[in-house]
Design a protein around this nucleic acid. Structure first.
Lengths: 144, 144
DNA sequence: TTTGAAATTACAACTGT
DNA sequence: ACAGTTGTAATTTCAAA
């Protein structure tokens, strides 16, 4: 994980469709060497996968909210229960007064309400506190 | 934006490196037709770009926190001020008691503290409330 | 949808450190 | 051994019929 690896990852975050030739040129390497480096970054799990970034509003997920989930039991083994709710994009165990923080995307606020209902149905969940996003300034890749 | 488009996007979210032939086979289309559909999805902005997903811990961003930012002024034009802090991965204007919610990734808690210091330096910011993530259950693409 | 040329990737064998 | 370079065959992309 040296400076060249970081530069490669940064380039791929910007546009994973770049050719290895262009990638190599950007970091001062041949196409073959760039290819080999990227292969190893994938192998080591530094690069998990290549995906497409989607406009949420265009696919019917225009409503974004963060929900603090309070619990009266140990939530450490509840990952699957949260994952079963398709509208939940992220779920994290947190320090502090609440127990779990989830990021939810729905088409409407009615659907958001329904997600809250399903959150309450999870074992141990005793409360929720939803924060609706009015405007997203930006969302960008993991910082390097 | 029909079921085939949705299936294409879902496939690309899983692995954007798939060939158009494989992509077409997955949704019952020829390679050329799949190619044309994906081109249009990009053109319409449904697909914003193709990126790589990176393991945050592997690139020195093992600490994740969400910070509620309180403000005593209109924050609607402050996007650039937040974007100038490289460790901020997301920034959203929110409804509720706080004004802005930011997602922060750093290598250490000391660096997290430094980000909070730089947040206070933004015009109008009057307070912060950080929530540190202990464990990430999952992070996945925008739901379809 | 099929076709075919151009580009790209993946995989060599090879070179220097 | 290790990382990089060049060369090449197999794939894939992409525009046109």
């Amino acid at each position: 994980m040296d400076d060249i690896d970081r530069a490669l990852v940064r380039n791929l975050q910007e546009d994973a469709g770049r050719s290895y030739a262009a990638l190599g040129a950007a970091v001062g390497l041949s196409a073959g060497a760039a290819h080999e480096r990227v292969r190893k970054l994938r192998e080591r799990g530094v690069i998990r996968r290549t995906t497409v970034e989607v406009d949420p509003a265009a696919v019917g997920s225009g409503v974004l909210a963060y929900v603090m989930v309070d619990a009266n039991a140990w939530m450490g083994d509840s990952a699957a229960a949260f994952a079963a709710i398709a509208e939940i994009q992220e779920a994290h165990v947190i320090a502090g007064s609440a127990s779990v923080l989830v990021k939810v995307r729905t088409a409407t606020t009615e659907q958001l309400q329904d997600v809250l209902r399903r959150l309450y149905a999870i074992d141990g969940v005793s409360g929720t506190q939803a924060t609706v996003v009015l405007e997203t300034f930006f969302e960008r890749p993991v910082p390097l």
